[in-house]
Write a protein that binds this DNA or RNA. Sequence first.
DNA 1: CGTCCGATTATTGATATTGATATCGATAAC
DNA 2: GTTATCGATATCAATATCAATAATCGGACG
Lengths: 227, 227
Amino acid sequence: MMYFSAQSNARDVKPAKSAATFNALKRDIMLGVLPAGASLTELDLAAYFSCSQGTVREALLQLQEEGLVRRQGHRGTQVSECTEAEAVEMFRVRQQVECSGILRALQMPSRTLIADLKTLFEKMLGAAAAGDELELASLDRDFHRRLFQDAQLPALDPILHRCLVHNHRFKISRSTSPRDLVATAQRHASIIDAVEAGDVGRSCDALRHHIATIVDLGPDVFPDVRQ
Amino acid sequence: MMYFSAQSNARDVKPAKSAATFNALKRDIMLGVLPAGASLTELDLAAYFSCSQGTVREALLQLQEEGLVRRQGHRGTQVSECTEAEAVEMFRVRQQVECSGILRALQMPSRTLIADLKTLFEKMLGAAAAGDELELASLDRDFHRRLFQDAQLPALDPILHRCLVHNHRFKISRSTSPRDLVATAQRHASIIDAVEAGDVGRSCDALRHHIATIVDLGPDVFPDVRQ
DNA sequence: CGTCCGATTATTGATATTGATATCGATAAC
DNA sequence: GTTATCGATATCAATATCAATAATCGGACG
């Protein structure tokens, strides 16, 4: 007999019901099950997810914060578009923000940085081996945000997160066939190596190259990177 | 006798009650009345603004989306910090995003762009003359976002808005004395001139210089701009 | 046949109430 | 004296209900 809750996973301190709605919608939008432009009404979602309108609204507000939906008062909520032009600009923002971040992070990295990155790297390899592209993207966000966390620029984190979500959505929308997810995960190794070595220049270069080569956007987007 | 509502101000098409709470809190945070780190509890705010907890929550979620507060489940809501390092990085993001934006905008500007910018410019001069630094900042956001609107990159707009809000908050926090607001407003004239002339290169340069010289952050932040 | 006005409906906005969770201090056991 | 447990309080989360608003459709009128 068990007198204690089996679900006391220390991870995921957010067992909220709105989170379940949020995650389900996010998944469907990221995978294209809900196409851009699709209308979402609060009461329909509430009925579908067996929760109240307020809970749905909270989930929709979070989705809006990640740029996945667009809410207009009294005119409904629509799934946002995901264009290449926007993806390009977000990749550029990422390059700028993440490279500035790694410069700051390496000046005083937290003691667990390397270990945390390696743990996430292992999980990414696992997700890639399992063919779970969505989980791989989520772990990739965790990886880049963990690295940026040591930059001590918390106000920039939501911006970075937004770019990461849009980039992943764009990448998944472009993946016609089962890509080589393992190679995608493996691409983080050089970043970890450079950070572990404490080499600021090499870390910045590795990160810059990593971001520039996530998807092939043509030679004009990142002129300084030869792919 | 009045047969029509006197409050039918065409402006502010969002007469929502949560907006009033949002605006009041935003004002107090921007002006430093609510200092960084201050705790905000939903029920206290609901009592103060004579509305319900849900309404307050909606306002707080909007504030979080603008980066003015930080919400932690069951641990309250705190006013966020506003550091110089973050402001610097956000200025850099702005330079990147707005300059890319103006390049796209000038390829197919909407017919009302120039007129809209000039209208906002006049309003900025008015707010500056009235000494209303907060209104001037709000109009400055409208100006830059109107310009960016023609870039057709809607997913980037929330990022730009967030940077603008943080930059304005930082600038106001730094303004010890009544600054020369008129000069600040006047600084937008050269951008309008270049855009009206349709000169892409000059527009981009004007915008880049404008952003780099909003506040004096030292020579290392924007090395390519001689102030 | 087209246009304007009004009722209908769909949708979000607001409120009050109840429930869940975390934090902190007091108390008792060791 | 230290630690562990329990309970009180503060706070957020969720639900149900009602109100306000905007889009839509159809008929009357010109």
